[in-house]
């Protein structure tokens, strides 16, 4: 998997790259508009993580450029602009997803995975992690090919864990992914706690190999022994 990160802020770009490399992606980067323009002209990527406000030009023009080049790159916009018009413009220009800064790295991973999976698998897509198989479109989960029933929030949580295996996920990232930006995350921690507890019990009873581990004060981690 080859990714391109277009971001002008050095330390943010560095963090994103380090985090993505942990997932064994091949990551290249561009720090400004022209560098990015050269790279997308010369090479093919599976996914482009694109900032909008760039020195030398707008990320939106890069999107247009990708379109004229008839390239098949998936694009995730990361922007500090949190307005609906910008989201709509970005998605209209062919971006696959839009993340508002600041975001959680776990969220970025989940979105990249989902986009790449959508691109690779035509027809029904599923995510398999050890003996757990999740069908996001149908909202069903199989453990050892046996369907288990989860409520909607438990399903969202499990999906998030499965797309971020072996990664420590903060409670606020979990809360945001389930409730969206708006709901006060701090208030939903108790809810996350009880839902994760239930989920843990359910998948353990069903005989799932991966295990959800609580990390004191911070969040949770789904561990698989390889």
């Amino acid at each position: 998997m080859k990714l391109l990160v277009v971001e002008d802020e050095d330390s943010l770009r560095d963090t994103i790259i380090r985090s993505l490399e942990k997932e064994r992606y091949v990551v290249e980067y561009a720090a400004d508009y022209h560098e990015a323009l050269l790279k997308i002209n010369d090479y093919d990527y599976d996914c482009v993580v694109l900032d909008i406000m760039l020195p030398g030009g707008s990320g939106l023009s890069l999107l247009e450029e990708l379109k004229t080049l008839r390239k098949k790159e998936s694009v995730i916009i990361i922007s500090a602009k949190d307005s609906i018009e910008d989201k709509v413009t970005g998605l209209d220009l062919g971006a696959d997803d839009y993340l508002t800064k600041p975001f959680h790295l776990a969220e970025l991973h989940a979105r990249i995975k989902s986009i790449i999976r959508r691109k690779q698998q035509e027809g029904e897509m599923n995510i398999a992690l050890s003996n757990i198989t999740v069908y996001p479109d149908r909202h069903v989960v199989y453990i050892d090919n046996k369907e288990i029933t989860l409520n909607r929030k438990e399903f969202d949580l499990l999906y998030y864990f499965v797309t971020n295996p072996n990664r420590l996920i903060s409670k606020s990232a979990l809360a945001e992914s389930i409730w969206g930006d708006y709901i006060d995350q701090a208030d939903s921690y108790d809810f996350i706690y009880s839902q994760v507890k239930n989920l843990r019990k359910k998948i353990k009873t069903a005989g799932a190999m991966p295990e959800i581990k609580a990390v004191y004060g911070f969040g949770y981690k789904m561990i698989i022994d390889e």
Partner: peptide
């Protein structure tokens, strides 16, 4: 407003993401 948003959100994003990397 957009500039303020950008100027503040980016360093916040950097700090939060660095902490997340650190926690891993």
């Amino acid at each position: 407003l957009e500039n303020v948003s950008h100027e503040l959100q980016t360093p916040l994003a950097v700090s939060i993401n660095k902490l997340e990397l650190l926690s891993e």
